[in-house]
């Protein structure tokens, strides 16, 4: 039953889903997939400049990575500053906390204008990928 629910949720696109994501305070406490993410896969997504895009704006504890951005706070210590649920909401749709944020909403297609044809109706990451990234970010303890 639980697997079925998770599968049903995954079928919804980010826009429809994001509206139904249970936000509690400044967090989404529950996993988007009903399952925990994989931190190793999450790390790969964070470092991937075409998928996660994170290092375009953020730096982080990745000494092997050249050319990290400085438009946003370092990801180092993200897991001590924020809870898993807080990280999840910031990934899913940071506009809920700050409408002017420059951070893209990784799991929402709401209110976007002139989205390129190749990206229309698609969220930046899938629910599973969000969970992987969240699982990785909580491990960044210092």
């Amino acid at each position: 039953m639980r697997a079925f629910l998770a599968a049903a949720l995954l079928c919804l696109d980010g826009a429809a889903f994001a509206q139904n994501v249970p936000v509690v305070g400044d967090a989404i406490p529950a996993s988007l997939t009903g399952m925990p993410g994989d931190p190793a896969r999450g790390r790969a997504i964070v470092l991937d400049r075409q998928r996660g895009l994170c290092l375009l704006c953020h730096s982080g504890p990745f000494p092997e990575e050249r050319f990290q951005g400085d438009l946003a706070p370092s990801l180092a210590g993200a897991g001590t500053r924020w809870s898993e649920g807080q990280l999840r909401l910031r990934m899913v749709d940071g506009r809920r906390l700050n409408p002017d944020t420059i951070m893209p909403s990784y799991f929402s297609t709401e209110g976007l204008r002139r989205v390129g044809r190749a990206w229309q109706g698609r969220t930046v990451l899938t629910a599973e990928e969000i969970e992987d990234v969240v699982a990785f970010l909580v491990t960044l303890r210092d």
């Binding site: 375009l56 050319f67 438009l71 420059i102 909403s105 209110g111 204008r113 390129g116 698609r122």
Partner: peptide, 28 residues
């Protein structure tokens, strides 16, 4: 000033608000 695209950014958010910072390795 209009935000656009899947990444939802305007020209001004980079070239006014964040000029001088680095987008990955590139100075904005």
């Amino acid at each position: 000033r209009e935000r656009r695209g899947q990444l939802n950014l305007s020209c001004g958010q980079c070239h006014d608000d964040n000029a001088g910072r680095r987008l990955a390795g590139s100075l904005i």
